[in-house]
């Protein structure tokens, strides 16, 4: 398990991370979301040892993460980087060897990943002649070629076409199935929701919510859609712990504080006449994220 414990980092007078903690378990795909500048990249760079933290700790398998363990982490930085004039196959072999594979294993693994990511025919080409999408795939291959113990991927889906997104998603799920913890950041929230076992929302360098999407949705209380055939939500006013959020035609969206009784709502609705709709509203990750960001803007 990869544990991030109380990380703090300052750049001059600006706090990039403040007491940031979360963990990525074995075989788990963890989606890391947040606005630009929230601290996602800084966290990943600290995990990979590219940046040093001011306080806090990164632990791996119960021990502080050191160079030798980190060498087995696959990393895809936000700004992609491969030697532009090197041949793709040779470049992957070289990276695999730097991460500790023997020459024959490195060659085999490079060929395997190039084939798997649809780049088998491009092994002899220089990286700089590949299309943007193929360079992205090459970058993923670079993170996978040495059979990593964990994957740290900063915006791996940025700029990919739908087919490439499917390929990348498939590979990440496959790695998780093999027990590899996968931490990745993305702004494509629907994709994160679909792909991740758990999600962490970071705001202003702090982790404001972490868990499954359902758990995150619960954290904000319960919401109900009720249709009693009235074009206003006045009937719900006065029910303890219940607030009217929105009215759409004869449908009313209600927000219930955690202690509120949904059966009291049902009884109040039935008093108005026939109840045509009564169900829980599960917010999407996008909605959760927006509400988190709007809190940030409100502050």
């Amino acid at each position: 398990m990869l544990e991030i414990l109380g990380l703090e980092k300052r750049f001059g007078d600006t706090w990039a991370l403040r007491d940031l903690s979360f963990e990525v378990r074995e075989g788990e795909v963890f989606g890391f979301v947040g606005s630009n500048g929230a601290g996602k990249t800084t966290t990943m760079r600290i995990v990979m040892g590219v940046l040093g933290q001011d306080r806090g700790e990164v632990r791996w398998a119960g021990a502080p993460l050191g160079f030798a363990a980190r060498q087995r982490f696959g990393y895809m930085p936000e700004e992609r980087g491969l030697y532009p004039t090197m041949r793709l196959g040779e470049e992957l072999e070289y990276l695999a060897r730097l991460h500790g594979l023997r020459q024959e294993d490195a060659s085999r693994s490079a060929a395997l990943w190039l084939e798997q990511l649809g780049l088998g025919a491009r092994a002899g080409d220089e990286v700089q002649v590949l299309s943007h999408g193929n360079q992205q795939r090459a970058q993923l291959a670079a993170a996978l070629v040495f059979r990593p113990a964990a994957l740290i991927l900063d915006e791996p889906f940025a700029g990919l076409d739908p087919v490439a997104v499917d390929v990348m998603s498939g590979v990440l799920r496959e790695q998780a199935l093999q027990g590899v913890p996968v931490l990745f950041s993305s702004h494509q929230l629907e994709l994160v929701e679909r792909l991740c076992d758990r999600v962490g929302i970071i705001r202003g360098g702090r982790m404001v919510a972490a868990g499954t999407v359902a758990e995150l949705a619960k954290g904000g209380g319960e919401r109900l859609w009720v249709d009693v055939g009235r074009a206003d939500g006045l009937w719900a006013i006065g029910i303890p712990g219940v607030h009217v959020l929105r009215q759409e035609g004869t449908r009313t969206l209600l927000d219930l504080v955690p202690a509120a009784d949904d059966q009291a709502v049902l009884r109040a609705a039935l008093r108005q006449g026939p109840v045509r709709e009564f169900h829980r509203d599960v917010p999407t990750l996008t909605e959760l994220f927006r509400s988190t960001v709007s809190e940030e803007v409100a502050r």
């Binding site: 760079r45 990393y75 491969l82 990276l95």
Partner: peptide
Amino acid sequence: AQEKTSRMAEVLLAAVR
């Protein structure tokens, strides 16, 4: 300079001191 401007350095420093 090529290693820095091609952003290769970050990938390398994850594997090499």
